[in-house]
Amino acid sequence: MKTKFEIKDLITVGIFTALYFVVTFIVACIGFIPIFMAFMPLIGPIFAGIPLMLYFSKVKHFGMVTVTGIIIAILMFITGHPYPIFIFCIGAALITEFVLRAGKYSSIKHCVIGSATFSLWLLGMVIAFFFGFREAYFASLVDGYGQEYVDKMQSYTPTWMFFAMILMCLVGGTIGGLLGARVLKKHFKKAGMI
């Protein structure tokens, strides 16, 4: 097992992070409609899990997933998400890192679990709806989005929703991972690309 970063690894990180980010971003745009916002942590990882599994099959040593997490956090921050996103992205990436390591970077089962844990970074996007951030955030939203929208949002996101979202992330990530594993088996194994 190699431990040092090579240029090849960095390029793999860049290109697959780009693909993952685009897929997630497209799904996240749907999250603007209030009811979908609540289910975004479930829907997002299902689609994003497919390219993520291909990426995980190319990850060969510690650190690559963390770099992906950091880059996603930077991009999310630039597009106007609050700072807790850094904590969530890097945290989720580190957990995933340990999961993949436990599977020695070759076990499909661990990749599926990793896909579930990596999806947890999505919580960083919705953290503003909950806990200490909640009151201030909704107050700032009233001016920006109008009272009707905020009422709708508020009714979809009671505090227990946060824990439901954790569950949704994990379930969505697992489904996405399994789907990805099937796609990999169907298309990539046969073509000899892994």
Binding site: E6, I15, F16, F188
Partner: peptide, 30 residues
């Protein structure tokens, strides 16, 4: 539908990743 779109994209992505690493090695990035 998503499979039809995503699988070819993923195929070309991993191909491009290989090409780029080769190109960057030639440029002496490593």
């Amino acid at each position: 539908y998503i499979e039809y779109i995503l699988v070819p994209i993923m195929m070309s992505t991993s191909q491009i990743a290989n090409d780029l690493s080769a190109a960057s090695l030639t440029k002496g990035l490593g």
